[in-house]
Design a protein around this nucleic acid. Sequence first.
RNA 1: CGGGGCGUGGCUCAGUCCGGCUAGAGCGCGUGGUUUGGGACCAUGAGAUCGGAGGUUCGAAUCCUCUCGCCCCGACCA
Length: 565
Amino acid sequence: MKVSRYLIPTLKENPSDAVVTSHRLMMRAGLIRKESAGMYSYLPMGLKVLRKIINIVKEEMDRAGALECLMPELTNADLWKESGRWYTMGPEMFRIEDRNGLEYALGPTHEEAFTHLVRTVVSSYRDLPLNLYQINTKFRDEIRPRFGVIRSKEFIMKDAYSFDVDEKGLDESYNAMAKAYRRIFERCGLETIPVQADSGNMGGSASEEFMVASEIGEEVLLLCDSCDYRANSEKAEYRSITAESEPQESLREVHTPDIKTIDDLVNFFNCQPDKFFKSIIYVYDGKPVMVVVPGSRDVNEHKLKNYLGALELELASEEIVIKVTGAPLGFAGPVGLKDLRIICDVSIRSLCNGVTGANKKDYHFAGVNPGRDFEIKEEADITIARSGDLCPKCNGKMYEKKGIEVGHIFKLGYKYTKAMNVTVLDEKGEAITPIMGCYGIGINRTMAAIVEQCSDDKGIIWPKEVTPFHVHLVGIAKNDEEIRQIEEIYDMLIDSGIDVLYDDRKVSPGFKFADADLIGIPLRITVGKNYFAKGEVELKERSKAEALSIAKNNIVAEIKKYYSA
RNA sequence: CGGGGCGUGGCUCAGUCCGGCUAGAGCGCGUGGUUUGGGACCAUGAGAUCGGAGGUUCGAAUCCUCUCGCCCCGACCA
């Protein structure tokens, strides 16, 4: 491909609305253009990369035995009503009506669609296992699109759904995907960190997220420094430290006018935040519940939701807080509350002589001791782990890292097959419900993550398997005869089956080199004065500083060597 | 949704506070010429309803009101 006939609108300056590396470089290298917030066009070279990623995903999915399908983007509301998600999905689902008033959703995910498909085509255990996937556009009305292509309203996703007769089968399907994912990301040139993740309220037993470590990541990971424990903060457990015991003080009421927050309390009582029984009222599935955690800790709503087995969980409004505690916000506590379900974090038991709200405006209790002053009826790990916490596996220290989630696999269970009434007959002729797994990869986001991870201050450095072209041929010619000689090399490369981008523009060499660095094709061949004088071309790897002088006859072999290594 | 910021040739920005003449610069683009191994140079040229609507004024990119779009932070831990 000749640059003069291609479309690579590179930008010398950073676009003003691109703030992260991948977004900036993808814009500047002429791969994408923004159409609107959270919506991007892919230009020819950007599309080429996207397709390479897609092909890797396809090859590995196929190798793992999954079958590609293509589902409609427009999904009938009835399907969503059947699973209940029409009502629980909320505003992130784009909903539309046709001219007759029939309701549809622009698919944000396709569990229902695939479950429905399977139910119409599968009837015997002999038809299973089945793992169906597609690579298709998803629509989500994101609360806030950001970071270019990393969080957008419209994106391409590979989503796969496995159906097995039993849990053992699901284990196999799941493990096959876990393996395929590792191969996919490795081939994409990405270093991913597989972490344990929360599988939501699907009743799923296993879930793994594939994260790319990055400062701009929107997920927080906890990694152990001495073993292989790594988990999403939504899921991460930690070993709580038992507080030192001290002689029990007596319970006393303290006047705390307008002292509501933990910070206020720390100042007022002049002690550590962990001396406070932070008491928070939530509403789960319409019912109020109080959770009690150490003052310095945050409630992990995912853990709490899982513990409660709740479909919905939200902080209680002030109204409800007043109703169940008798006091305005800021003065709730477990002491003396009889009719409210109270869940204590596992670390509460060992806190002594603490402080908590007195359920009375402007009053707190001090000298509070669990067991004596309030009963611990329910105990669970419901707080967010953080840097410095002890690893639940080995007692090592954990540290935090931010990551971009590029893939997620998890055991779904029976949620959809049950809700949508999918059955097959087993060997005995009895109806059984298949069990599902679900496996996603964000394609655009994977591309952004690659750029995020594989770039320097000059531009992108594409990994071998996803580079838009194999070689960037830079010609520096002073006359027609020299152009002819460069084109000889260009033709030779094409004839050897090498995908070459030939910069034939009439611009200065520096301009071409700068563009080549920006675009990031891993190999660059420069044909200029050394070739016309000595028959030598320059071969340079984008990732290295020094170049190699080689003869024309060795070019093809060198390129093939690079790509087969 | 709450807070903050920004909309001026294709791109990056100045001008706006304190209203005043044909709205500027750099980059990019067209033409002619000189250049050619790390974003060349000279000459010349095209290109802007100053996001949109309404208002104030003799006069609005600039002031006021409304509106649209975009970016960033946050989104309830008492």
